[in-house]
Design a protein around this nucleic acid. Structure first.
Lengths: 332, 332
DNA sequence: TTGAAAGCGCTAACAT
DNA sequence: ATGTTAGCGCTTTCAA
């Protein structure tokens, strides 16, 4: 099929120099229209496609980006990362970049370090920045461009995010306005994740702008694992919450299922909403009110940002993408 | 941090040739113990790590593998691919390979072709082989080693899989033995996917070895989209099935939720089981009986197989991994 | 506008 | 056991 044609083959066939062929194809440097046409013609004919490794070597860049994906218990199956990764990969492909997966367990930087050491990626996307900012430090030290999806501990980091804070604020406000009697409960996962911090901040802002104090008995932060989750829910029920807000889709599914298990009806007995949507939440009966963020588009935008940086354009220090409030029957 | 030390730097510092350094590090060719020690020492001191792009270029291999992941509607959020990919990536990292994502929509080979053209991967994993075998043909034409996760249309393909057929057969048999009155219904997704073929075959084998004819009214193959799914379920309920078997976790979640929506109780009114497990099925009340296959381990095994092939060891033409039957309350 | 030649960092064949 | 050298396919300086 592809007989590994190289520039030199084209040059010989056309009786010109390899340099000219290179220039004709890359568009850098002046080549006569006539020559360029001949080269492009021949290139197609021979089905030439450049050896990217040679190109990489010569240019000292790889046309790869690395994407750090968390691989921890509960989060590892979260649809967000998969959708985000697909968005990234698809977009990169369009610009002839490739996407390297850096699967990372619980803050372990060894795989990232390996990729950096091997110089196999031109830039890095961190899909779930952590509070400690270890990865960011590593990247900054090496001078490797990177973007974090969500707030980073590194104030200099280029970040992009869905408008979690704003969304959470708006959804919380909506729920406050339309609540039935009873307090609002909140369950949020690990506070090591910066996204959970944003969510909490949005929640707080809504509560405070309503003039009320932030409830301390019905707000659970840093809830990880089923056991803790179960305890939190029990607690919220005892305190007669009228509504439970879940930090993300996974937590929400647990909540919905646990409520079903003890015979509580949504929304009759209690309302439920989620700060993050996924197809699963729409499948329930009743479907669950949630903030929708389009992980795939976020991924694409992130990749776009990073590639622009790699290609020398300068990037917004902080980008915010919109959200959508999906008010569904679980809160009606 | 890493000042891009190269072999030559070490060689100069030690007053020996670059070749010797290369040999000392790679272990190929003879080097005196003494020299080797000095080299390794110096290497650590300077924090040397090889420029993999240069190495790739020289050796004409990339130490990358490509992983083709489907990006279609319903499947795109299936936890299987995410878990499988993480398993692959983790294992590859251990052997200093990297994992390139090839996100692919509905049988579109353009991204795969791009990766092959650019010569950026030494081998390919197809995580969801399709009936038409287009990708396999492309790979075979190019002479690029590949492994498919599940049966391939290409009879020569090296394949690895969880024992879907066996598992589905066993689970079906179990359900037949322990069924309450009423027929067994089956809902399976797109028959373009070879894994769904395997599932159906397992089901058929179980039915036939029970001496019964395969039901034709209560078996739905090629069910895609919510509408079709809803119709299938309605139909199964009208025919008074005692049990619904779902081809995978996503279908199953739809089924469970739809049953809840119309007030059917599991398992009292109807039993439900799934040919594929995911954490979500365990969260329901009652938890859903399912076959468990450990996508992460499958991914790791797949990567292991492919890397062995790339390194010249010859591979089993077909590998089968075990399964586990998780009998849960949905069928008790 | 075009070409010759050097160089990117590594491996490997060949020589010593 | 160690060194010399060519070469991988491309980009890029320098010259013409």
């Amino acid at each position: 099929m592809n007989n590994n044609i190289k520039l030199d083959d084209i040059a010989r066939k056309l009786g010109i120099s390899q340099t000219t062929v290179s220039r004709a194809i890359s568009g850098k440097g002046r080549v006569s229209e006539q020559t360029r046409a001949r080269v492009l013609e021949c290139m197609r004919e021979l089905n030439y496609s450049p050896n990217m490794i040679a190109k990489s070597f010569s240019e000292n860049r790889t046309y790869n980006i690395g994407v750090v994906i968390p691989m921890d218990d509960m989060e590892s199956e979260a649809p967000f990362f998969q959708n985000c990764l697909m968005g990234i990969s698809k977009y990169c492909g369009l610009r002839s970049y490739d996407t390297l997966v850096v699967a990372t367990e619980k803050g372990d930087v060894s795989q990232l370090r390996r990729v950096l050491d091997s110089r196999k990626a031109d830039g890095i996307i961190i899909t779930r920045p952590l509070q400690d900012g270890t990865m960011e430090k590593l990247l900054a030290d090496r001078g490797v461009p990177y973007v974090t999806v969500g707030q980073s501990a590194d104030m200099d980091a280029v970040t992009i995010d869905s408008a979690h804070k704003e969304g959470c604020c708006e959804l919380t406000s909506y729920l406050l306005m339309n609540n039935k009697p009873g307090k609002i409960g909140l369950i949020i996962g690990s506070m090591d994740q910066t996204v959970n911090k944003s969510r909490y901040e949005g929640f707080v802002r809504a509560i405070e702008s309503g003039g009320a104090p932030v409830p301390n008995k019905t707000v659970f932060l840093g809830v990880t694992g089923e056991l803790q989750l179960r305890r939190a829910i029990d607690d919220l029920l005892q305190r007669e919450c009228g509504c439970i807000i879940c930090g993300d889709d996974i937590i929400c599914m647990h909540v919905v299922n646990m409520l079903a298990a003890i015979g509580k009806s949504i929304p009759r007995d209690i309302r439920v909403a989620s700060f993050y949507n996924s197809m699963y939440l729409d499948m329930y009966s009743p479907p669950i009110t949630a903030l929708s963020f389009k992980a795939g588009e976020l991924g694409a935008a992130t990749a776009s940002l990073l590639l622009d940086m790699l290609e020398g354009r300068d990037a917004e220090h902080e980008t915010l993408l919109g959200f959508e409030m999906l008010i569904r029957r679980s809160t009606m």
